[in-house]
Design a protein around this nucleic acid. Structure first.
Length: 327
RNA sequence: UGGCCCGUCGACAAGUGGUAAGUCACAUGACUUUGACUCAUGCAUUCGUAGGUUCGAAUCCUGCCGGGCCAA
């Protein structure tokens, strides 16, 4: 659909689909079909090796260490848009487009990622780490529309992607069982024990890769009321908490990037999202002895180390970083 | 060995003669380009067991099995 919209705007469109892993065969075939319907030349770019190294390995290692990776956030700058940009360069093409629900905006000489017109569909979170040289040549045509409108447009044009399912889990783990995937790769995840909210030993858990902060299901712990993963300790033990105890007042950030390149400074106020599908929530920056923290105005649920906090201002992505820890 | 309690879904637990609540856990589905959260639906033809009383028992009676407490 993104390609079709650009065609209507008189862009000369060339298409590429990236084959990230063996699990992507169907996606590649769907792209080939769509390209044929639009009579657009389509190249299949292979980057299985890079993807495996930059995304999949890091994903497994992060989980095995008791943190919660976000592969999409990592993939976009390091693999997906990098590969597209390289291919565009080879062909002498200036602009790069994708079907993400987000927008771009030039403000004060800085190219920002901006939230989509359809707030409920917004995917700007996943794009927050794109470097300026990518942001400056990015076109995100579907970000201007509501999802249903895009679907209707596709239907009207008789495109086969009109009824394509749009929800997926981790793209390289089709069955959704990431713990099994990690184990199958031979990556060992830290063993440990469940600790009740009162500190009681509740027995061994299945390996740290099975759990993430805020998780309720799959613990197999029956205490008469719901319990959640509150913290995964460095040694591998998992501290549980009752409902409400999995909220954080703030987070410590690492690997910070900003749209303009200037570091975050104490006192700055932003709206923050700690997951893609979240309502932006006010926070304040604090920099102290080289450590940058975000203080949430309201406690936020399940701020898992390894996930990312993305900062917004007036609908523009201002920066963000990985969550090192919460407090 | 006497005396007294108790035994209901994987866990906890209502129910004390009228035909098995609820919570947690679990399963499936929805939602979702990360992990989660959330929501919907499902989940004991049966109440330790064997008999008895009764129109009717998880509920009353008896034996046995299992667990606990007290006494010597």
């Amino acid at each position: 659909m993104a390609a079709r919209i650009l065609q209507q705007q008189d862009f000369a469109v060339e298409a590429a689909v990236i084959s990230f892993s063996p699990a992507h065969r169907r996606a590649v075939e769907a792209a080939q079909k769509a390209a044929a319907e639009l009579s657009i030349p389509l190249a299949v770019l292979h980057c299985e090796e890079l993807f495996d190294k930059a995304v999949v390995s890091a994903f497994c290692a992060t989980y095995a260490a008791g943190r919660t990776p976000n592969p999409c956030v990592v993939c976009n700058p390091l693999v997906k848009f990098k590969v597209l940009a390289d291919e565009a360069d080879r062909r002498g093409i200036r602009y790069i487009a994708s079907g993400h629900y987000a927008r771009t905006e030039l403000k004060n000489g800085v190219h920002h990622i901006a939230v989509a017109a359809s707030a409920a569909r917004d995917q700007s979170y996943m794009l927050y780490r794109l470097p300026p040289e990518i942001r400056g040549r990015l076109c995100l045509p579907v970000g201007e529309f509501e999802k249903p409108a895009v679907r209707h447009m596709a239907e009207d044009m008789g495109l086969s992607c009109a009824d394509a399912p749009d929800s997926q889990e981790i793209c390289f783990i089709p069955d959704g069982d990431h713990a099994a995937f990690i184990a199958a790769r031979g990556v060992a995840s830290l063993p440990g024990r469940f600790l009740s909210p009162e500190g009681r030993d509740l027995g061994p858990h299945g390996g740290v890769a099975h759990y993430t902060v805020g998780q309720r299901k799959g613990l197999g712990i029956a205490l008469g009321q719901p319990v959640f993963v509150k913290e995964i300790l460095a040694g591998g033990d998992i501290r549980l908490g009752y409902a409400g105890e999995e909220y954080a007042a703030g987070v410590v950030l690492q690997d910070i990037v900003t749209a303009g390149g200037a570091p975050l400074a104490t006192g700055e106020e932003y709206l923050v999202k700690i997951r893609s599908a979240a309502a932006p929530s006010p926070c304040k920056v604090r920099v102290e002895s080289g450590q940058t923290s975000l203080l949430f105005q309201l406690p936020l649920r399940a701020a898992a180390p390894g996930q990312h906090a993305v900062l917004y201002c007036d609908g523009l992505v201002m920066g963000g970083g990985a969550i090192h820890s919460s407090f």
